[in-house]
C-alpha cells in the first residue's frame, strides 16, 4: 500500500502540498482542514460528489481563492496564499470546468496567449516588428504550432473559438495551458460533456502530456472509469473535507468513499 499524504515520501519528490487549508464564503464552508500533496510527474485525481470543494481546491492552488487558514507549499516555498500571477509564473497552468477561452479570438491566438509570460522583448521592439522581437514571435509561433499538431487541431486554428464545438473548445483550452510549458497542470473536468470518442481522445492527450513532457497533472473528473485508468493517486473530498487518499484501488474499496457516493444518512 502506498503511503498517504506527505509520509514516507522524499521531500524532493513533492512538487506541491497543501496543509490544513480552510476556505469559507460567508456562512458556507467550502474546504475544512484539507491536506494533501502532489508528487512530481504523477497524475493526481481529485474526486468527490457535487459541491465537495474540488474546484475550490484548484482555485486555492492557482490563487483565485485565498484560504482563511492553512499553507501551500509549491516548489519548496511555503505561503499562506497563492496569487494567480505567481502561480502562472511558477509554472501552474489550468483549464476550467466551463471552458474559459477568449471567445472572440482564434484558436491560434488563444494558444499564443498562453505564451504571454514567455515573451520578454520590450514593447518598442514589438512595435517595430524587427530583429529580436520578430525572431521571438516566430520562435513562439513554432512552439505553438507544435502544440497544435500534438492536439490535432491544425484544421481549426484560424477559427474564432466561439464557433467551435464544445469538445474542440476543451482541446484548445488544453492547448493554451500547454503553451505555458507548465510544471503542474490543473484540469477541471477535462471530459465533462464529452461523448465516448472525445473522452478517449482527451484521455490519450492527458497520458501523452504526462509521459512525453513529464508534466505533473492534477485533475478533477466525474467519470470514475477515466479516473481509475488515468491516475496514480486519488484524493477524495466530501463536504469540504478529505475523506480518503491513496491509489485508485484503495480508494475504490474505502467504505467512506462508497458512502459518500452512494449516500448514507448524514
Amino acid at each position: 500500500m502506498r503511503a498517504s499524504a506527505g509520509q514516507g515520501v522524499a521531500a524532493g519528490d513533492i512538487v506541491l502540498s497543501v496543509e490544513d487549508v480552510s476556505l469559507g464564503f460567508g456562512g458556507v464552508q467550502a474546504l475544512t482542514g484539507v491536506s494533501f500533496d502532489i508528487r512530481n510527474g504523477e497524475i493526481r485525481a481529485i474526486i468527490g460528489p457535487n459541491g465537495a470543494g474540488k474546484t475550490s481546491m484548484l482555485n486555492v492552488i492557482n490563487g483565485f481563492y485565498h484560504p482563511q487558514s492553512g499553507r501551500i507549499t509549491f516548489k519548496g516555498k511555503t505561503r499562506s496564499k497563492m496569487r494567480p500571477y505567481e502561480a502562472a509564473r511558477g509554472g501552474i497552468a489550468r483549464t476550467f470546468q466551463n471552458v474559459a477561452l477568449f471567445k472572440g479570438m482564434t484558436a491560434l491566438d488563444n494558444i499564443m496567449a498562453g505564451r504571454t509570460l514567455k515573451m520578454h522583448r520590450g514593447v518598442l521592439w514589438q512595435i517595430l516588428r524587427v530583429g529580436p522581437a520578430l525572431a521571438e514571435e516566430v520562435e513562439h509561433r513554432l512552439k505553438v504550432e507544435e502544440i497544435i499538431d500534438f492536439l490535432e487541431i491544425a484544421h481549426i486554428r484560424k477559427i474564432p473559438v466561439g464557433r467551435l464545438p464544445y469538445g474542440l473548445q476543451k482541446r484548445v483550452e488544453l492547448g493554451r495551458a500547454l503553451a505555458m510549458e507548465p510544471n503542474l497542470l490543473l484540469l477541471d473536468e477535462p471530459m465533462a460533456g464529452m461523448n465516448l470518442e472525445e473522452k478517449e481522445d482527451m484521455s490519450r492527450f492527458i497520458i501523452d502530456v504526462n509521459n512525453h513532457f513529464g508534466t505533473t497533472i492534477a485533475l478533477i473528473e466525474h467519470d470514475m472509469g477515466v479516473v481509475m485508468d488515468l491516475s496514480d493517486r486519488v484524493v477524495v473530498l466530501d463536504y469540504g473535507r478529505k475523506i480518503a487518499d491513496g491509489t485508485p484501488d484503495d480508494v475504490k474499496r474505502d467504505q467512506k468513499v462508497i458512502d459518500a457516493y452512494l449516500g448514507v444518512g448524514h
Binding site: 502562472a88 509564473r89 474559459a100 477561452l101 477568449f102 472572440g104 479570438m105 505555458m180
Partner: peptide, 15 residues
C-alpha cells in the same frame, strides 16, 4: 482582448 473576454482565464495564463 484576453482580459476583456475572460478575467480568470487571462489571469491563469499570467496576464
Amino acid at each position: 482582448r484576453a482580459v476583456a473576454d475572460d478575467h480568470q482565464a487571462a489571469q491563469s495564463v499570467g496576464i
